[in-house]
Design a binder for these strands. Structure first.
Lengths: 152, 152
DNA sequence: TTCACTGCAAACGCTTTGCATATGG
DNA sequence: CCATATGCAAAGCGTTTGCAGTGAA
């Protein structure tokens, strides 16, 4: 609990500092959204975040959610993943290491992994193509263990 | 030329066989679309394909293009890549080995690569997570050599 | 003749935008 | 104060769907 709280305070400080630096307003909505994200585990999409906040009687609009995501992504407190045309997913990113995803085609479950061998592949590709790689996305799609059993 | 022609004939045979097997109709539109794709190099999106065919005075609709893509994907003559929410790209796939992409953020250029080490990563992830991986997408984003020079 | 396929346009789902109102600095 | 943010609803954009007409088998 205390550790949870520490993180809440810490990310609030980071966000506050970022907003001040960039001369953006420190609105209650922005902090409410940050709080909601960091008191909640795992991956989420805009719609479920919207509904969750509506349920708690926050007055918040989707436009503001999208807006605030931009800010949170800019200061590395949130990361965005586009898993398919109509499946954009966000996750809190503070102090979490870069990682990749396995997505279940049946139930939509998302699991994370991190394999250092990927960095070697990227280095090789940079050498061969002359590109300077800034970002990557590696997504594996398939069936999770639960759905494997159900579907058979 | 002759080699190009051979491929055109070969993929037409494959498509024809597939349509017969699945009891789908062999419409002129379907073969016109296949032909257009295979007489054209590299990656393309639906809209540019649509415009290209309109320019040649084919009477074709977007709905039919999307429809036919499904068929061509089913018989492995076309592969689809979703590079971002509003950036779906297709490419001819006959006899080409599975590969991944480096995309230039500045000019949109797409290059391909194939690194066997990725299969090892996938196997490891299957072992750890219990997922059965059916498909993957690895995209590297960055700056191509040309844009590196221009942007500096 | 029949029904899968087609073109066209309207509907979709997520995201962005426009605008009037509210509020942080 | 007033420029930036906000909520709401309308518009955007690639894709999908519904439907009446067409043509492959």
């Amino acid at each position: 609990m205390s550790v949870e709280n520490d993180i809440q305070v810490k990310v609030k400080d980071i966000f506050q500092g970022y907003l001040e630096e960039k001369k953006h307003r420190k609105t209650p909505e922005r902090f409410a959204i940050l709080n909601e994200i960091y008191s909640h585990a795992g991956h989420f999409d805009i719609d479920s975040l919207y509904k969750k906040m509506k349920d708690k009687n926050y007055r918040v609009s989707r436009a503001t959610l999208y807006n605030t995501m931009e800010l949170l992504i800019s200061c590395n407190l949130v990361r965005k993943h586009q898993f398919g045309k109509n499946l954009a997913v966000f996750e809190k990113a503070h102090q979490s290491k870069q990682h990749d995803h396995v997505i279940c085609n049946s139930c939509g479950e998302v699991m994370e992994f991190c394999d250092p061998r990927l960095q070697k592949i990227i280095s090789t590709v940079e050498d061969i193509t002359g590109y300077q790689v800034i970002d990557h996305s590696l997504n594996l799609f398939g069936t999770c263990s639960k759905c494997k059993i159900i579907n058979q």
